[in-house]
């Protein structure tokens, strides 16, 4: 079962000392919708190669936080910084487009970058920086086959050869075959190879969840954000899922951010847990600490 790291490896190095390093740093993120404060000064650190779970009651702002991290919402305050090992840090919120300020006149070089982010920036830039996600309500391309779904995710790698593609050059076909093979490897990893040519919308629910995970992995991310991956699965499927997530961490050195209501699964998998309530972090720590924390118990029971 020792599947090799699929695609060009972004995560070099081995877990150990480096796994203590912070890969994703969320600092003081505040998001308001109109008058409602959805997230209030949320800060958390995701360590490299860890599984971090975000838990909390319904409406606590978990998915909203995910949407901020993946660039779908733009927080009014705060910083979200991705620091890959041995590479410069990316300010994710800068990718969404910042407003122009007078200070830009002093540094005209920034203006171009800001303009570019404003015109062409968005969640896709965050994904390109190395953060992939799944959705709470599955968002597959239903009228396309499973394999096509996975190929769409490799658009960035493939579309460099536009004219080659039109002419059907050998180089293009090689790239396309590589993409197909990469997709098939991920499908095999999720035991979905039999479904490759079926329409994604026609698959059973559990399979759709796995296809979505496979699809986001095809973007070759550093961080994988899973939004309630076990929702709607039966206990056996949940067990299999837990095994797969663990393998993603161990075999592929992926850093995983997880929203989940299944506390059993969370306690079993995570290295670090963040508890949100009413848009605020009320506790964080290792699973054992969280289980003993009175505020967490109160938030869940009261």
């Amino acid at each position: 079962m020792a599947a090799s790291r699929i695609g060009a490896g972004t995560a070099s190095g081995v877990p150990g000392e480096e796994s203590l390093n912070t890969l994703l740093d969320v600092q003081d993120v505040t998001l308001r919708f109109g008058g409602v404060v959805a997230l209030n000064r949320v800060s958390l650190q995701v360590a490299w190669g860890n599984i971090t779970a975000i838990i909390g009651p319904n409406g606590a702002g978990k998915t909203t936080l995910f949407n901020c991290i993946t660039g779908f919402y733009k927080p009014q305050n705060g910083h979200i910084i991705l620091t890959p090992p041995n590479r410069p840090a990316t300010h994710l919120h800068h990718l969404l487009g910042q407003s122009f300020a007078w200070s830009d006149l002093v540094h005209p070089g920034q203006v171009w970058g800001k303009l570019r982010a404003k015109m062409f920036g968005g969640p896709h830039s965050v994904c390109r920086a190395g953060i992939a996600r799944t959705f709470q309500n599955i968002r597959l391309f239903k009228e396309m086959t499973v394999l096509e779904n996975l190929l769409v995710a490799q658009y960035r790698q493939l579309n460099r050869y536009f004219f080659g593609g039109l002419l059907g050059t050998r180089h293009f076909r090689d790239e396309e075959n590589m993409a197909i093979n990469r997709a098939m490897e991920w499908l095999r990893f999720f035991s979905l190879e039999a479904d490759a040519d079926r329409l994604a919308g026609q698959l059973p629910y559990g399979h759709q969840r796995r296809v979505e995970m496979a699809r986001s992995l095809c973007t070759d991310p550093m961080v994988l954000c899973l939004d309630e991956p076990a929702a709607g699965l039966n206990p056996m499927e949940t067990q299999a899922l837990s095994h797969l997530i663990r393998r993603l961490k161990n075999d592929f050195n992926l850093t995983i951010l997880l929203i989940e209501h299944d506390i059993g699964l969370v306690m079993e998998l995570s290295d670090h847990i963040v508890v949100l309530d009413h848009g605020e972090v009320i506790a964080q720590g290792c699973p054992a600490d969280i289980q003993r924390n009175p505020r967490v118990v109160e938030a869940y029971l009261g």
Binding site: F33, G34, T63, N67, F72, Y73, F135
Partner: peptide, 8 residues
């Protein structure tokens, strides 16, 4: 009008 919030 209210600015629309895309539901994700």
């Amino acid at each position: 009008g209210q600015p629309q919030i895309t539901k994700v």
